[in-house]
């Protein structure tokens, strides 16, 4: 395969901390291999900035394998960049053309305050999980997995929902900053399994209450979240969340 080097212009959001106002800063990056990942391209830029005595650009990353949910970045008007069903760490520079100007912004939502530059605090998602995204199991020996039969369709749908890596692209893409695709994946994942049944009602009510406390918006079913999701979580999960909520709310004591 042909190997190309790219010269690019970057417009990167720089912000010292949560209490300061940020602004776009322009950078030129040259001789970028199109086989590099997007984050490696930023690494190259940061190395250059360090050498020249400038503060490197802060951005989140961890596994760089597309499975941990740490990377973010709103690239040219789309969470995780131009490719479909892809995380920023798995976005490669062959997605761009020589001479392109790339605009890089952080996730924008009041519920995800900026920590520095392109890094935002996604602790709100952790607190939503803490409110009910678990099953309570007493300690002791694990039971035989085969003792609990599970319908294959439900197991598959549950697994598809459990694919959510909690990166926050759904919130970033939504015009309402709604976290309902994330929440619906977490609720559906457990609502479809017998292990989730004992806490089924309290889970959805508590998680929705925590989501509202965190300051996310309401879903208007535009579908932007589903289109931006790197793990292709279906918007049908939001309809399931609504059903779970209605059922739990109407039958609660």
């Amino acid at each position: 395969m042909a190997h190309n080097n790219l010269n690019l212009k970057l417009k990167v959001w720089r912000q010292k901390n949560a209490n300061t106002t940020g602004a776009f800063v322009k950078y030129d990056v040259n001789d970028i291999s199109d086989e590099m990942s997007f984050l490696e391209m930023l690494d190259v830029l940061n190395e250059k900035l360090i050498v020249t005595g400038e503060e490197p650009i802060a951005f989140d990353h961890d596994c760089r394998e597309g499975i941990c949910g740490m990377c973010s970045l709103y690239i040219d008007g789309k969470p995780h960049g131009p490719w479909e069903a892809n995380t920023t760490c798995q976005l490669h520079m062959r997605a761009f053309k020589d001479g392109d100007t790339i605009t890089i912004e952080p996730w924008r939502s009041n519920a995800f305050p900026i920590v520095k530059d392109l890094t935002v605090d996604r602790g709100a998602f952790d607190r939503i999980i803490q409110a009910g995204g678990y099953v309570s199991v007493n300690t002791g020996n694990a039971v035989d997995g085969n003792s609990l039969p599970i319908n294959k369709d439900n197991a598959d749908a549950s697994f598809a929902a459990a694919m959510c890596i909690g990166c926050g692209a759904c919130v970033a893409a939504c015009k309402n900053s709604s976290a309902m695709l994330f929440l619906s994946a977490k609720v559906s994942h457990l609502a479809l399994l017998p292990q989730g049944e004992p806490e089924r009602k309290s889970r959805v009510l508590n998680m929705v209450a925590q989501m509202d406390k965190e300051g996310f918006g309401s879903c208007t079913n535009t579908g932007a979240c589903e289109a931006a999701c790197p793990k292709e979580i279906s918007i049908a999960n939001i309809a399931r969340l609504n059903k779970e909520y209605l059922r739990a709310g109407l039958t609660a004591e």
Binding site: D76, G77, K78, T103, A173, K175, T222, G223, A227, A228
Partner: peptide, 8 residues
Amino acid sequence: AVNYSKGS
């Protein structure tokens, strides 16, 4: 700065 309009 750049709005996401492709998904909806």
